[in-house]
Each structure stands twice: as structure tokens, then as C-alpha cells.
């Protein structure tokens, strides 16, 4: 058996290694057909499958067994088969279901973007913008939790959490001791330490970077500023920590380094996890060797002025149902 399998996503065929997930195959193709992923994180084992935003339709199972899959599947946890055909943005059913997931993710979300540190680089904000409904049909009181500090470096706004479990996997896999976790169950679940213990560990700060929303934020982020007013610059230093390569992004406002984060790739994932010393304690330009301004992903709201790269697939322009399903995206592409 060959190690490469063929998979077709929204009409685009690609050859990927056996065992690749649909999501990662789509990422190899790139562009608009990549399903949004709120909980999957390629660097965290066991992640994915929970948020359901990455759902797609498998219209043909494989060459051997061409039957379609009966339900929509989570692309981040479904591996491709040879000859599989997948529909993402060319399936009105997928787009409708995804809008449903987005609506549901937002019913208990405080929608406090105007005061949230994550605004501008929040995956949920992007998701709501691209896939959501205009207004909510949820008329009940939203679930609320108190904001708490877990240690002197990290703040937790549980109200904003979407329970993606990424921070839990990070603590399990990147740090040597996990002191926070998921308590309670159902929609009472919350991220917590249960008792007042500081999350204090050489790599604990990485939970901030993996959090797709503004639930875990950097308390040392100085002068609280909107990210789109800051200027990201890639930099590095000779970090003495054996597991940290000292490659970071510095976020500048004028001359000041407001915060330090890991570098993120085009899918919003960190390239390498960084240690707490680099993240929290090195906030002077003199600590770093500067490289170049950071490339900003075009899907981010930070880059919302740069949407000219958005090109609807040709098939969408030809098909009326698809035009309807993709209406907002189309309008936006015409506006630009």
C-alpha cells in the first residue's frame, strides 16, 4: 500500500500521507477551504473533536467504500481515506451547521469584546464574524463566573472560556505539573484550580497563547492596549532554558514592549512554546535581538483592512445555492 492517499476537498485534490486528518489535508491546500478549528491544536496530543466548528461533510468515504458518511464529521479528528471526497464551504449543509455551532458557542459568551484583551486576535471573534448569525436568539441570562487571578502572571475570565481543553492539554504536556483543570460538568464546567493555588511553572505562560479566546490573559501585558495599535516584531534571545529556543514575538507600542508571546503560524498555533522568563520578565528591547516585523495572518481582525486576498472559489460564483450560503463572504469580497 502506498503511503500517500488522495483526498478531494471542495473540489481540490491533494495527496497526503496516510493517517492525515481532513483538517490537516485542508491546511496543506490552504486558503478559504480550511475549516476553522477552535479546539484542535496540532502540537497538543489528544486535542480536538470538542468545539465542532471544524465539521465537514464526507460525500464519498473512499475509493473502496464510496458511501458518504451519514453525519457531518469533525475534520480535526477524522483521518482521510484514499479517494475520499469532502465538502466544506461548498456544502450549504456544512455552513448552516457551522453557523449553528457558532451561535451555540456564543449564547453564554459575554460578548465583551470592547473590553477584552484578546479582541483583535480572538478566534471566536473571527469565527463569529465569518460564520455566525447577525443577532442572537438567546434571551436568557448568560452564565457568569468571577474573574480570578491564577498566580501573579495569568488572569482567568471564565465567562469567555469555550472549554476547548487546550490549556489543560498544555499543562499536561508542556509543563511538568498540572494544577488547573476542568471542574464540574455540562454547562457548569469551568477552568479552575479549585483551591487558590498559583499556576506557577516554567512553562505555564503558554496556556495564554493556546487559549483561542480571551479567557486566559497575560497580567503583565503592560498599559493594556488594543492589539491593533501594537506592532508585532519577531525577535530572539539566547534563552538558558533547555526547552526554550527564545524565539518570540514582541508587541510594541512606540518604544515599549507591552508583551511577549510565542510566534504563531498562519493557523494561529504557536511555532514553539516559550518559557515564562522570556514571556514575563524580558520586556526591554535590550533583552532581545530583533529580526523583522511579524507577518500577520489575513484571517485575523488585526488585518481586517487587508481582505483583498479573499477570493471566493469559482464554484461558489457559479452556483446559486452556494451563493446564498456564502452570501456574507461574497458581499465582503465585493466591497473590498
Amino acid at each position: 500500500m502506498s503511503d500517500l492517499v488522495k483526498v478531494t476537498i471542495d473540489g481540490i485534490t491533494v495527496e497526503v500521507e496516510n493517517g492525515t486528518t481532513i483538517l490537516n489535508a485542508a491546511r496543506q491546500i490552504g486558503g478559504d477551504i480550511v475549516p476553522p478549528a477552535m479546539c484542535y491544536y496540532s502540537k497538543l496530543k489528544g486535542s480536538g473533536g470538542k468545539c465542532r466548528t471544524c465539521i465537514v461533510k464526507v460525500s464519498k468515504g473512499s475509493e473502496k467504500d464510496p458511501r458518504p458518511m451519514p453525519k457531518l464529521v469533525a475534520s480535526c479528528r477524522t483521518t482521510v481515506m484514499d479517494g475520499m471526497e469532502v465538502l466544506n464551504i461548498t456544502s450549504p449543509e456544512v455552513l448552516e451547521a457551522r453557523a449553528g455551532v457558532v451561535e451555540i458557542l456564543l449564547i453564554n459568551h459575554p460578548l465583551d469584546c470592547p473590553v477584552c484583551d484578546q479582541a483583535g486576535e480572538c478566534d471566536l471573534q473571527n469565527l463569529g464574524y465569518e460564520h455566525g448569525l447577525q443577532k442572537t436568539r438567546y434571551e436568557f441570562e448568560r452564565r457568569t463566573f468571577d474573574r480570578i487571578d491564577i498566580g501573579d502572571k495569568i488572569q482567568l475570565h471564565m465567562n469567555r472560556c469555550i472549554l476547548c481543553y487546550r490549556c489543560v492539554f498544555t499543562a499536561d504536556q508542556i509543563t511538568n505539573k498540572r494544577v488547573h483543570g476542568i471542574l464540574n460538568r455540562g454547562d457548569h464546567s469551568e477552568i479552575s484550580t479549585y483551591i487558590q493555588t498559583a499556576v506557577d511553572n516554567d512553562f505555564s505562560g503558554n496556556v495564554i497563547d493556546v487559549c483561542p479566546v480571551g479567557a486566559l490573559t497575560d497580567r503583565t501585558f503592560r498599559f493594556k492596549n488594543r492589539v491593533w495599535f501594537t506592532k508585532p516584531v519577531d525577535a530572539h534571545r539566547n534563552c538558558s532554558h533547555e526547552k526554550c529556543n527564545g524565539k518570540v514575538t514582541l508587541w510594541y507600542k512606540g518604544e515599549d514592549v507591552l508583551r511577549v508571546t510565542a510566534r504563531k503560524d498562519q493557523f494561529g498555533e504557536v511555532e514553539d512554546f516559550i518559557c515564562n522568563e522570556c514571556r514575563f520578565d524580558k520586556k526591554k528591547t535590550a533583552d532581545w535581538t530583533l529580526e523583522h516585523p511579524t507577518h500577520i495572518s489575513e484571517t485575523s481582525v488585526i488585518a481586517s483592512n487587508h481582505y483583498e486576498t479573499f477570493k471566493p472559489l469559482p464554484v461558489i460564483k457559479e452556483n446559486l445555492t452556494l451563493q446564498e450560503a456564502n452570501q456574507r463572504e461574497l458581499e465582503r469580497s465585493f466591497k473590498i
Binding site: 505539573k177 498540572r178 494544577v179 483543570g181 464540574n184 484550580t193 479549585y194 483551591i195
Partner: peptide
Amino acid sequence: QPIEVYEVASF
């Protein structure tokens, strides 16, 4: 870890 017990007990 203690958190593993809290997680379970509260579930």
C-alpha cells in the same frame, strides 16, 4: 495530582 481528584469529584 490533587487537581485530578478535584476534577473527578466535581464531575
